[in-house]
Design a protein around this nucleic acid. Structure first.
Lengths: 147, 147
DNA sequence: TTCTCTGCAAACGCTTTGCACGGAT
DNA sequence: ATCCGTGCAAAGCGTTTGCAGAGAA
């Protein structure tokens, strides 16, 4: 329990530091985003937290996610059309979506081209790299060989 | 006029070859996608063509775009949440969206990392690279220096 | 009290679905 | 006559907005 409490405390401090009033709902939503690596949708966040916060509304989830995005501590990913997924900001990385199991995996970006500040005379401030294919776990399951 | 007719003929042949019955609406929609470099939304396609095809319906635009995507001759881009843009498939390239003027510009992908067939043991079949920033035209307008 | 956060209900906008008409074979 | 494409109208679904009540300062 101690571990959880210090985690909650850390989140609280972080939100305060970003000028965000750390309400209970906001704490729990940010904690969910920063702990798990599941890149949840708004709907998944709602359905996960509603078990422990029975009064939670989707409006609050959306309000909170939009606030987090405005404050720059959370990013919305639209790897596939028609579903936005969210993640807490960490270091730059690419996303890999397995078309077989649907998993979304963080990947390193190992490419000097993607560090360029200018490309073709255009000033680059944001980079989003999405890969799709079959993840190693699915390949094993189907008896395919990796590499 | 000759040029346009041969262009229409070329599109007709292409669609036939892909197993798509080249109806007038489909022809015009594909022509729009393959000629212009504007990466239009479904709505923009509708509003562009309605001038010349007054009976056109949005349903047909959506039907057609979905058909094209299923046949693999058109790709839907979701550079920004909540708007899907379409482009005819050509060679792999990145997209740059200017946050100032909203223009979407095709860019070369100059990066061996993005040609890798496997990354971290995952088999990569699709790559989507979106950059955002200020395009060279806007930088000139605001008196910023490129490079 | 005042200000902010929450959450219900309704509105919104894009996309899909149901279905009937019309054209082509 | 059959099949396929079209397009109207309605439904669907994720997200936002309006607003009133609860809670903190």
């Amino acid at each position: 329990m101690q571990g959880q409490e210090t985690s909650i405390e850390a989140v609280k401090n972080y939100l305060n530091q970003k000028g965000i009033n750390p309400s209970y709902q906001r704490l729990r939503i940010f904690e969910l985003l920063s702990s798990g690596k599941n890149h949840p949708t708004a709907d998944l966040i709602y359905n996960t937290l509603i078990r422990e916060i029975p009064t939670l509304s989707k409006t609050t989830v959306y309000n909170t996610l939009n606030l987090f995005q405005k404050r720059g501590i959370v990013t919305g990913l639209t790897i596939d059309e028609n579903e936005v997924r969210y993640e807490a900001n960490t270091k730059p990385h690419a996303h890999f979506k397995c078309t077989s199991c649907g998993a979304i995996i963080d990947m390193p970006i190992d490419c000097p081209y993607l560090a360029e500040k200018f490309v073709d005379g255009n000033k680059v401030t944001e980079r989003h790299l999405y890969l799709k294919g079959i993840c190693s776990a699915c390949m094993k399951m189907y008896g395919m060989t990796g590499q």
